Simulated assay, not measured.
Amino acid sequence: MPQQHFIFRTIEVDGQFLRTAVRPGQGNHTPLLIFNGIGANLELVFPFVQALDPELEVIAFDVPGVGGSSTPLTPFRFPGLARLAARMLDYLGYGQINVIGVSWGGALAQQFAYDYPERCKKLILAATSAGTVMVPGRPGVLLKMASPRRYIQPSHGVKIAPDIYGGSFRRDPKLAKAHAAKVRSSGKLGYYWQLFAGLGWTSIHWLHRIKQPTLVLAGDDDPIIPLVNMRLLAWRIPNAELHVIDDGHLFLVTRADAVAPIIMRFLAEEKQRAVIRPQLVRPATKP
């Protein structure tokens, strides 16, 4: 696959420096904004972006405290991060966009779709949950996820990747090394701030108010987010459909070629409004 061009910019939004990357499109599609997983810099989603239709414009960014973005003095909560993302889109000149959220970023995507329904045309949720009401993964996996060590020490990330990501990472050691090579850590504090953003947060009480067409994507071997959580999202969101992928937590990267067509079909669909034909009123006949 040929290397695609990304435009990198670091912008200042509400006192935060945000590193952004835009893959320009052809203007025929609504742009797609990516909310990435916890601790994950934007380069980690590039294999997924490369698998999407090259005419689709894609926006990625490092949230505060991750990658090339500045670390705030105090943590954001999800509503604050959603507001920051909306301001970033204003700065970059985008109006309505489609949104995909991955893992931790899936919670932020839910918050954005709920808080800014006029900005979010369609919603894609991948390997995520409704927050604190979720059915948790195995305790050993969650304990490893509670530490940023895998981002700070790449060798540690390679070692634990099969346990925490599951799926293809269990079978192919090269995947963990390739993933670790793209990691750009900005330290521990930003990771802990992201954990704080989700502390006590849940969307379960307002999921039924998300009106956007929603695609829910789940891995059937996901040690972090058990499949039942994705089924719950698809059940609670009124206009949602669920696709289960035969892989682990990072199926967007490991199965990009299979997942990208599903996403492109979903984004291309236009729901047809019902045509209500007026009842034909026959003129009264004279007796």
Rank of each mutant, 00 (worst) to 15 (best):
N98Q: 06
L81V: 04
W193D: 11
S168D: 12
R255I: 03
V228S: 10
E118V: 06
P139T: 07
P226Q: 06
I11G: 06
D14Q: 13
A284F: 09
G166F: 06
V275G: 04
I7H: 10
I225L: 08
I262G: 01
A256Y: 00
E55Q: 14
G106P: 02
G68D: 09
L73I: 12
E241W: 04
D220N: 15
D115F: 05
Q279S: 13
V244G: 09
I160A: 08
T128W: 02
D222C: 14
F196N: 06
R171P: 05
P117Y: 05
I38F: 05
P117W: 03
G219R: 04
R231F: 00
L33Q: 01
G39R: 00
D115S: 14
I225K: 01
V45F: 05
P213W: 02
S103H: 06
R231V: 01
L199M: 15
P278D: 11
D62T: 03
R150E: 04
A51P: 08
P47C: 09
T30H: 03
Q3G: 15
P54I: 05
H29N: 11
I210Q: 00
M230E: 06
R209F: 03
W235A: 15
F266K: 05
A40P: 04
F196S: 11
L232N: 07
G37R: 00
G137V: 10
L242R: 09
Q50H: 13
R23A: 12
V228R: 14
V135I: 12
K121W: 09
G101W: 00
Q16A: 12
A21L: 08
L217Y: 01
R138P: 03
P173D: 13
P173N: 10
I11E: 14
A86M: 08
L207F: 00
V141S: 07
A130P: 02
L18H: 04
G65S: 05
I160Q: 02
V275R: 08
G67P: 13
